[in-house]
Amino acid sequence: MERIKHSLSTSSAFLVYLLIIMIAVFTAINPNFFSAENFLTILRSSSYSGIFAIGFLFVLLSGGLDVSFASIATIGQYVTGTILIQIPGMPWPIVVIVPLIVGVLLGSFNAFMIHKLNAPPLIITIAVQNILFGVLQFITKGHWLYNFPKWFNQFPLTLVVSTTNANGVKYGLSVLTVIWFAVALIAAFILNRTIYGRRLYAMGGNVEAARRAGINILKYRIFAYGFLGFCSGLAGLVHTMVTQTVAPNTLVGNEFYTIAAVVLGGASIFGGSGSVFGTVLGVIIMAVLTNALTIMRVPAYWHQAFLGAILIGSMAVTAANSRRAMKKG
């Protein structure tokens, strides 16, 4: 109890209150908003961005940055899609594992270059993003992939817990949401209870001190970026399951949605602090906001301006908070 109180006293508490206020306001404006079905839909549709966000949190914690994860995910999607279409009888574990391996490899490659070239991660990953996207567009010629095997259509519709609504339509907790939360739990365990997680935090707090403490910086960068690669592969897979199509530019160009969610979730933009719980909240707040804007029929053109304003606002609050904390010390 003491621990929960303690963790709530930090930035997460602010997010919980923000979420409650948002839900209250949106419900007052449009009562349709407040229903278990709507909330479960929000959770299902944000499961892939939730997985992206957890991966991105690892990189941010390590003191890094990556804008290439959406193109890594798209590469994974095309690999999965191609396997599904070309070899329909391929056992499902292979279909699942291959994009994850692709993600880990490409993520590790990012880490390796950032480390060896000692260049700003942003510049390296912008370059990588363009390389991957350019090659992808060239190879696929921009073609979409669809018509996947039956099991691939059916699996994402699985409901772990379900009930029926007034119209007799079944709804419930989607298996995709469960995958997202499972990744979140594992990530939280890694970060809080294993030496790898603690060292990642340490490295984000003071790289030089970490080096002197004998931490292999390259190894931990590969760990962070590789984990983001893994999450990207998985998020791509989940996204494919949701949309049942693979297109070159549905994920690319929306990286900033993920970055905004993680920063909103209280992760420090300077590395070394942030939590899985906060990140999950950040994703949910972003999803609730988008959903509410849609339900309230705010034109889609407005969404991005909102998003930008929220990102800047939340970063400004974080920066002001960290400066106040510094002054106190």
């Binding site: 991005q304 301006a305 930008g308 800047i312 002001a320």
Partner: peptide
């Protein structure tokens, strides 16, 4: 405000485009 340039201009990029 003290935001890192890449994140500040990432935000304004979204905002201006929005």
């Amino acid at each position: 405000i003290g935001l890192p340039p890449m994140l500040a201009t990432l935000g304004t990029m979204l905002l201006y485009e929005g």
